[in-house]
Design a protein around this nucleic acid. Structure first.
Length: 630
RNA sequence: GCUUGUGUAGCUCAACGGUAGAGCACAGCUUUCGUAAAGCUGAGGCUGUGGGUUCGAAUCCCACCACAAGCUCCA
């Protein structure tokens, strides 16, 4: 290995983690003789190894595995490396009875064209592996790793393959770093939106309603309302028009849009009605569908919960003749959609089955694509600046021409895919923000820019999306009359900068740790009367705020001020207003702002004006100076 | 859907084969109070659901439901 790597801490840690994976595998072969191997890489916070086990593994086995690992470390086994020619390597793996390693070796030799394969040996353990590793197991920390989870994982990430048993470990260079990591993790989980959602009465998910179907409690509904208000204002300014569409739709629409052939797995099953004669619909569908496309006439007249708003907006577009003069035509709706997500993937508000989407569809000509795509990205950026998001990245999600399942996942029109991706690349270059290009993440109808966030649990999710659709306009028979008097098919941009209420709010909760800026806060100001005797004045203060549409309430409990302050702070209410004799006498309030040490006394009228101003400007006040500045 | 776990009062947890308990929250009373938890009293649980083992089950076993961490899939 090059000398400089020796001193690079990241490289060194990577070698430690990867070597620990091998130690884990050796320990597993002692604990479960006959275990065979999958992959065992280093990852962001440690390592894992995948196995096929003769006997299942339980959590109770992890301490024993750790013990065995420590023994192996104590033995000080040196790692030795060798390169074997392809045939010899295969023969060795066959002799080792490692079927998955053999499969992978074949692929490396045949598809990637490698001539030799590397093997690493430490003690009795041999693994086909690229390395690098530490020189000896004695370089591995004995107390800076911890096996923390057993999970199933499909061989090579394909659910048609065997499910292997994956053991995860955290690993660091020192015990102190491991402890710090565990503490930081526990700290982060205090911001988990599921925990805060319960503590702050934001939402609940109820078995009797259904898995993945969130109920917004009054406090959470305020967050949704404020987001909708924001979207309404900014979209209005950006030239969008609002529409409204129903939750239920006949199958014919999704047959024409392609959802029933390409998206059916994620749709709730059809509702069939006996008393409707759908013969006319069926013959219409037969005429409209592309030649040779398989379809089920039984579904044409059945009703579906809508998994996307697009087809409805397309019908709005088609409801009137359209001229090129109207383009780009921007139709917006916070629309509720339902998707039958796999039960195991549901997670709080982050992954649900019913969601309200900040949706809009923009119908445009080919030469308008680049400029409009940029305008949409700019809208995204302005939203993110408002919320102060910094920790996200952009992903250009492309189709994957080599995906064996591509025919079931993507509209089959390779030139259109390439052209559309070209437009997005050009727009992104003009935008000048870095992005990562990833194959196989496109929508079925076109490529998109996804904005990726991480939860406090470090799971990555798409929160916003900006998509270019070259396919569905044609399928749906959409057209506008162009300058030359001919009918043309519009391109369509699908965009959702604020994602869905469910996922977006889950990120907002975690981003702010539940301490929302005043404009978003469910309760913006809580008035704390010093004692019962000041209750009437407290009510007057709250009423003065409510008269300006500010969400104010009074703590009417029979508690001491200290308790009321504590409770108000625990609820992360941005503004607490203490009123007692002094305040009542001068028509003033004592203002205590969340997270700000200094309290100020203000005349009631000035307070109302101040809060009204900060809410109108959607300011995030973190210090009194933020207000003084304006 | 799959793998491995976890389900006890509204919340956080205890009881680990022998009569379900605490703190907070809730209700009543006392107190009327100046900046992060006043005091007393009370109510609240068929231990996720359904079976089984046992003289006896929150505790052991099975199935189902839900949740968590992963895999797959996705906003």
């Amino acid at each position: 290995m090059p000398a400089h790597e020796e001193h690079d801490p990241a490289q060194k840690l990577h070698r430690i983690r990867h070597s620990l994976a091998h130690v884990l595998a050796q320990a597993m072969q002692r604990l479960r003789p006959g275990a065979t191997l999958g992959f065992g890489p280093a990852i962001d916070d440690g390592f894992y190894y995948d196995f096929i086990l003769p006997e299942p593994l339980a959590d109770d086995d992890l301490p024993r595995l750790e013990e065995l690992m420590r023994e192996i470390i104590a033995e000080g086994q040196p790692f030795t490396q060798e390169e074997l020619p392809g045939a010899e390597a295969l023969a060795r793996l066959e002799a080792m009875r490692e079927p998955h390693k053999v499969e992978y070796a074949r692929e490396l030799l045949e598809k990637k064209g490698l001539a030799t394969l590397g093997f690493y040996t430490n003690g009795p353990f041999v693994d086909m592996c690229e390395g690098p590793h530490v020189a000896s197991t004695k370089e591995l920390p004995r107390d800076a790793f911890k096996l923390h989870a057993i999970a199933g994982a499909y061989w090579r990430g394909d659910n048609d393959n065997a499910m292997m048993t994956r053991v995860y470990g955290w690993a660091f260079a020192t015990k102190k770093e491991l402890r710090e990591y565990e503490q930081a993790r526990a700290q982060a989980l205090l911001r988990d939106h599921r925990k805060l959602g319960a503590e702050l009465d934001l939402f609940t998910i109820d078995d009797e309603v259904g898995r993945g179907l969130a109920l917004w409690l009054p406090n959470g509904a305020v967050l949704c309302d404020e987001l909708e208000k924001l979207a309404r204002e900014w979209e209005f300014a950006a030239g969008y028009q609002r529409v409204r569409t129903p939750h239920l739709t006949r199958g014919i629409l999704y047959q024409k849009s392609g959802h029933l052939s390409l998206y059916k797995a994620a749709m709730y099953p059809p509702m069939k009605l006996d008393d409707e004669d759908t013969a006319v619909l069926v013959s219409e569908a037969r005429r409209a569908l592309p030649e040779g496309e398989a379809w089920d006439p039984e579904l044409t007249g059945a009703y579906f919960l809508k998994p996307m708003n697009c087809p409805h907006h397309h019908r709005v577009f088609a409801a009137r003749p359209r001229s090129y003069r109207q383009l780009p035509l921007r139709l917006a709706e916070y629309g509720m959609v339902y998707r039958y997500e796999l039960s195991g993937s549901l997670q709080g508000l982050t992954r649900v089955r019913g969601m309200c989407m900040n949706d809009a569809h923009i119908y445009l000509t080919e030469d308008q694509i680049q400029a409009e795509f940029l305008r949409v990205m700019d809208l995204h950026r302005r939203y993110y600046d408002l919320f102060g998001f910094k920790d996200y990245f952009l992903r250009l999600s492309c189709w994957d021409p080599d995906d064996p399942k591509g025919r079931e996942k993507y509209v089959n029109d390779p030139p259109a895919w390439e052209r559309s991706q070209g437009y997005i690349r050009a727009a992104m270059q003009e935008l000048g923000l870095p992005y990562e290009e990833v194959k196989g993440e496109a929508a079925f109808y076109g490529p998109k820019i996804d904005i990726q966030f991480k939860t406090v649990g470090m799971k990555e999710f798409t929160v916003s999306t900006n998509q270019l659709d070259f396919a569905v306009g044609k399928r749906m028979g959409l057209s506008y009359v162009d300058r030359d008097g001919l009918d043309k098919v519009p391109y369509i941009i699908h965009r959702a900068p604020l994602g869905t209420h469910e996922r977006f709010v889950s990120f907002l909760i975690e981003h702010y740790g539940g301490a929302f800026p005043t404009w978003l806060a469910p309760v913006q100001a809580l008035v704390l009367p010093l004692s019962e005797q000041f209750l009437p004045y407290a009510e007057r203060v709250a009423e003065a705020l409510r008269a300006r549409q500010l969400r104010a309430d009074v703590d009417r409990s029979d508690e001491k001020l200290g308790k009321k302050v504590r409770l108000g702070a625990t609820r992360k209410i941005p503004i607490l207003l203490v009123v007692g004799e002094k305040e009542q006498a001068d028509e003033r309030v004592t203002v205590r702002r969340y997270g700000i040490e200094e309290q100020r006394s203000l005349p009631l009228a000035a307070l109302v004006e101040q809060v009204e101003g900060e809410v109108r400007a959607r300011k995030h006040v973190r210090a009194w100076a933020d207000l003084d500045a304006s």
